[in-house]
Simulated scan of single mutants.
Amino acid sequence: MSVTFHGNAATLKGKEVNVGDSAPKVELVAGDLSAKSVGGASGKYQIINVVPSLDTGVCATQTRKFNQKAASLPNTEVFVISLDLPFAQGRFCSTEGIDKVVALSDFRAKAFGEAYGVVLADSPLAGLLTRAVFVVDPNGKIVHKEVVSEITNEPNYDAALGAVK
């Protein structure tokens, strides 16, 4: 699969997952450096918000909007995943008042990026995660997927939120 960064093609690597697939369960790093898993059956909806880095305007906006819009959704966990270190994620969330979204880092093994096919293989952002949103139902099935075609654009929030029934 391919996306663009400022209009220039960028290739993704990893195993592509699609709506209807079982969401791979992947271990990430939480703010306290403990392990936290996303994907798989959890008994709740999971909105998995993927960004290249919280230290960019669009990524910050995306995370703030999910924090606001998903706050009232019942039986739903909302995550933001990037390769930022957990310490930087914690500072961002604290400064921005992000309290409904759990920040997780894929910095150790890039296991999430590989399992969901969202690692940028080339472009100036090579090695980072591309912008994407996955919604996983309580039984662990992917019910929504958006890999944003132009990395500098925001995702379709309403489509992601609408997938949580």
Rank of each mutant, 00 (worst) to 15 (best):
K110I: 13
N75K: 13
F107Q: 08
V119N: 08
L161S: 08
L125N: 06
Y157K: 08
V101S: 04
E96I: 09
T63V: 15
K44W: 11
L104A: 12
T11S: 14
G20E: 11
N49C: 06
S22V: 08
A23C: 02
G57N: 08
V143A: 06
A88I: 10
K100G: 05
G14T: 12
C59E: 07
A121P: 11
F5E: 04
L83E: 06
L120K: 05
P24K: 00
Q46R: 02
T130S: 12
S34E: 09
C93S: 09
A115R: 04
G97K: 13
R91N: 10
V164W: 05
L12I: 03
S105K: 04
V101R: 00
S105E: 09
G57K: 03
R131P: 10
L83A: 06
T61H: 08
V58P: 13
E77C: 12
C59H: 08
C93V: 02
P138Q: 03
A159V: 09
V135L: 10
K25W: 07
V3A: 06
L125M: 13
K145Q: 09
Q46A: 05
F79N: 02
L104W: 11
L73V: 15
N18F: 14
G43P: 12
G31S: 11
T61I: 08
T76Q: 00
G31A: 09
A35T: 03
L125Y: 09
S2L: 06
S22E: 05
A23L: 02
G43D: 13
K15P: 03
N153T: 04
T95F: 14
P24Q: 02
N139G: 02
L85G: 14
D55N: 11
L85Q: 14
L125D: 09
S72R: 06
K65E: 15
R131I: 06
L129C: 14
Q68W: 03
N49Q: 01
G90A: 15
I98E: 09
A109F: 02
A159Q: 11
E16A: 13
D84P: 13
L161P: 02
F134G: 07
Q46T: 03
D99E: 01
T130W: 04
N8D: 15
A103I: 11
D55A: 15
V58N: 12
S82V: 12
P52F: 06
L128M: 06
Q62E: 15
L83G: 07
V136Q: 03
